[in-house]
């Protein structure tokens, strides 16, 4: 397992130029994610219209994996409803922990290498846990 399989170009690119970074004017859902292991924090805001994600944005400081994961996630969830989001969460979680192949997940499949770095799985899933907390009306999420 080489470093380039973990840090794929897509991940490096999204770390350098994260998409959907910032704050929304009228969020309907939000949550703060926290990884107590490394101190990473992530604020996630969503604006749902007619039950689907219309706008999404994140802020916070994190490692390349968590930043790229938040960036790619925010791109991937636009237009989805809650059921679809839950389904995607489950798929991504399975990918990161090694139960799912990466071919069904499009760009998110870039995180397929993370399963060989067990200490970094939580970096990749922080944004997703925060997303779920926001959708289910919880104020915060922790990867602990």
């Amino acid at each position: 397992m080489s470093l380039s399989e973990l840090y794929q170009q897509l991940i490096l690119d999204h770390n350098r130029s994260p998409r959907n970074r910032g704050a929304l004017e009228a969020p309907t859902h939000s949550a703060v994610g926290h990884n107590p292991l490394c101190g990473d924090q992530l604020q996630l805001q969503l604006q749902l219209m007619d039950g689907r994600v219309a706008e999404v944005a994140f802020e916070g400081s994190g490692c390349a994996i968590s930043t790229a994961s938040a960036s790619l996630m925010t791109d991937a969830v636009k237009g989805l409803d809650k059921d679809e989001l839950d389904e995607l969460f489950a798929k991504f979680h399975a990918l990161a922990t090694g139960d799912e192949s990466s071919d069904k997940l499009g760009k998110l499949g870039a995180f397929g290498g993370i399963r060989d770095y067990p200490t970094r799985v939580k970096c990749a899933t922080l944004a997703w846990h925060t997303l779920r907390a926001a959708l289910h009306g919880e104020l915060g999420a922790t990867t602990e």
Binding site: L3, Y7, G39, I65, T67
Partner: peptide
């Protein structure tokens, strides 16, 4: 470069360092 990413790269070179808040969050 975030400390965690440095830690992972260093590990691939056999170099073990600690990255994180070192149980001293007020210092961070």
């Amino acid at each position: 470069v975030h400390p965690h990413d440095i830690g992972t790269v260093l590990d691939r070179y056999g170099v073990a360092v600690r990255t994180g808040h070192h149980c001293a969050q007020p210092v961070m």
